[in-house]
Amino acid sequence: MTDTLKIASWNINSVRFRIGIVEQFLKNEAPDILCLQETKTVDETFPADAFRQLGYVHQVLNGQRMHHGVAIVSRVPIAEDDRLDWQANGEARHVGVRLGNGLRLENVYVPAGGDIPDRDLNPKFGQKLDFVERMTRWSEGLDVPTLLVGDFNIAPLECDVWSHKQLLDVVSHTPIEVEALGRLQAAHGWIDLGRRFVPPPMRLYTWWSYRAKDWAASDRGRRLDHMWASPAVAEAAVAHRVYEDSRGWLKPSDHIPLLTEFRL
């Protein structure tokens, strides 16, 4: 049997409030590493013991009170590598680690960008575009095998949203965001693992709004969460899954976890 490494990513929308479903996911799927976004807690109140009890003794945290926050918890040794301020304002939106096999794992939470897709009318939208541009410049200089995961807050393809036509003017699917993400992907030759395993035009969503009375019935989803790999890393990927049923768990996040399995 081939040895594999399983890496998961999940915008949990408050890790303390939703620790129950995090534990459920870890017990069911047993990833080796879990990258979390929007943890919404400072490092001192991160539920570290709950993860340790399940074997995730290696933890790298970059927390922030009430908003943002990212973390990587692991059953295999990891070493903290970087905390990049792509927002250029001190927000806790990134943490990176290196694994013993030389893989660089970067966990990012891209800003949502507000409601109006106009840099002049909505500074948050400009900040989002600038964030992606800084990631693009960083990607150009990468020279080691890297896996970039997280909540990108952009659904790039027409089949990544429930209605391409109705969402063209909605932040997360506007042409300017899609073009920015395309430049980011080209800057390092990133391979979109989600669409490698679930090719277009197949439906693939990772987020459903809390506003829907019945998220599953309306199914107005978007693919905001991604796993991108350097070409050599992508070649080692043997499976990719999204856990859509978790959107219906008790006290769910509006995002669902993704998991990619790699051949060692």
Rank of each mutant, 00 (worst) to 15 (best):
M1R: 00
M1S: 15
A8M: 05
S9T: 10
S9N: 10
W10M: 03
N11W: 00
N13D: 04
N13F: 01
V15D: 05
R16D: 11
F17C: 12
E23M: 11
L26D: 05
L26W: 05
N28R: 11
P31L: 11
D32F: 04
L36P: 10
T39H: 09
K40H: 02
K40T: 03
D43E: 05
E44K: 07
T45N: 15
F51Q: 07
F51V: 05
R52V: 04
L54S: 03
G55S: 11
Q59W: 00
N62G: 05
N62F: 08
M66N: 15
M66C: 14
H67N: 12
H67V: 10
R75V: 06
R75L: 09
R75F: 09
P77E: 01
A79S: 13
E80G: 09
R83I: 04
D85K: 05
W86V: 10
W86H: 11
W86D: 09
A88K: 03
N89Q: 13
A92E: 07
V97S: 08
L103D: 02
L103R: 02
R104V: 02
N107K: 04
V108D: 08
Y109D: 02
Y109Q: 09
V110H: 14
V110C: 15
G114R: 00
I116F: 08
I116P: 06
D118R: 05
D118L: 07
R119S: 14
D120N: 15
D120Q: 15
L121H: 06
Q127T: 00
K128R: 04
K128M: 06
K128F: 03
D130A: 15
F131D: 07
E133N: 12
E133K: 12
E133S: 15
E133I: 00
E133Y: 06
T136A: 09
R137M: 13
R137F: 12
S139F: 09
S139D: 09
L142P: 02
L142N: 01
V144K: 06
P145V: 01
L147K: 03
V149M: 14
V149Y: 08
F152Q: 13
N153L: 04
N153F: 03
L157K: 06
E158H: 10
E158P: 11
D160G: 00
S163P: 12
H164G: 12
H164I: 04
Q166S: 13
D169M: 06
V171T: 08
I176C: 14
I176V: 13
L181V: 01
G182M: 10
L184F: 11
G189N: 03
W190C: 15
W190R: 14
R196K: 13
R196G: 12
F197W: 07
V198R: 09
P200V: 00
M202C: 11
M202R: 11
W207Q: 02
W208Q: 01
Y210M: 07
R211T: 03
R211N: 07
K213L: 15
S218M: 05
D219G: 03
D219N: 13
R220K: 13
G221F: 01
R222V: 01
R222G: 02
D225H: 06
D225M: 07
A229E: 07
S230F: 00
P231F: 04
A232P: 08
A236C: 14
V238Y: 05
A239I: 01
H240L: 13
H240V: 15
V242L: 08
V242W: 00
E244M: 00
D245W: 00
L250K: 12
L250D: 13
P252G: 13
P257A: 07
T260Q: 11
F262K: 02
R263Q: 14
R263H: 11
L264T: 13
L264E: 13
